[in-house]
């Protein structure tokens, strides 16, 4: 029943799309779903399509994983040392406030374009992971920490047995939100920076040559990949939480 409902909703919106295409009647502004999907099918037969997807995916995932590691480490250090917190918090707040476009332009001046989406995914996800992890650490039961003090439990045991269990759900929650942000911001950065051999560059070229069918085809590819990636990570996170509760 749920599957039929989903199919019905998709069919409804495809019909709306088709009607809008007929009403607008301009191939430069909008193409029909049939044309967009046919173009996606054509693109999927080319090596360039899969190379671009592989390149973008690899870089965004690298940025995401780096942000996950650094975010957790910075949150841990920041919770332990007040001076680290005082130094790190303003930087994290700046990362939160600066628009992706500004970062992309600044990064283009500093880095090689190929590293752009790695960097942008990193700066987008880092604040999310940092704040969530820090909240998790702060919510660790103080009575358990006091118990650890009384029994002189070494730091590695505190981390492994007390903090990891308490903080894991917060990190998982940050990661599941962050993965979507990393993907969208990474592609946006590739588009602004016209990083060759990436999804963003393909979108850029399609726009320059007024190839609306390509823009729609690539956009559908991005949506599908985003969906697959979020679903994939949800499975991973579910396993992590299952391990955590065992």
């Amino acid at each position: 029943m749920a599957f039929l409902k989903t199919v019905a909703v998709i069919v409804f919106w495809l019909l709306v799309w088709e009607v809008v295409t007929v009403l607008v009647a301009s191939d430069i502004v909008i193409v029909s779903p049939r044309v967009a999907f046919a173009r996606l099918y054509q693109l999927a037969q080319t090596v360039n399509f899969w190379v671009s997807i592989g390149t973008s995916l690899g870089r965004v995932l690298l940025g995401f994983v780096l942000a996950l590691g650094c975010g957790v480490a910075l949150a841990a250090l920041s919770s332990r040392f007040k001076i680290v917190h005082a130094l790190v918090l303003p930087a994290i707040n700046v990362l939160n406030a600066v628009p992706i476009a500004s970062f992309t332009i600044l990064a283009l001046m500093a880095f090689h374009a190929s590293n752009l989406s790695v960097f942008i995914a990193f700066v987008t996800v880092l604040p999310i992971v940092f704040h969530n992890t820090k909240k998790g650490i702060e919510n660790t039961d103080p009575l358990l920490l006091e118990m650890a003090d009384v029994f002189r439990i070494p730091v590695w045991k505190r981390v492994l047995f007390i903090y990891v269990k308490t903080v894991a759900p917060y990190v998982v929650s940050a990661a599941s939100v962050g993965i979507g942000f990393a993907w969208k911001s990474g592609i946006a950065a590739e588009l602004i920076g016209v990083v060759s051999g990436t999804i963003g560059a393909n979108l850029h070229n399609a726009r320059i040559f007024l190839n609306t069918a390509d823009v729609f085809a690539w956009t559908i590819a991005i949506i599908l990949l985003s969906y697959v990636m979020e679903r994939g990570f949800k499975v991973v996170f579910k396993e992590v939480l299952k391990w955590q509760s065992n």
Partner: peptide
Amino acid sequence: KKISMVFQEDRLLNWESAIS
């Protein structure tokens, strides 16, 4: 001096086994 204690509350790690 080293102190050991049974606290008023149990203060056990609920997610760990008795032996752990």
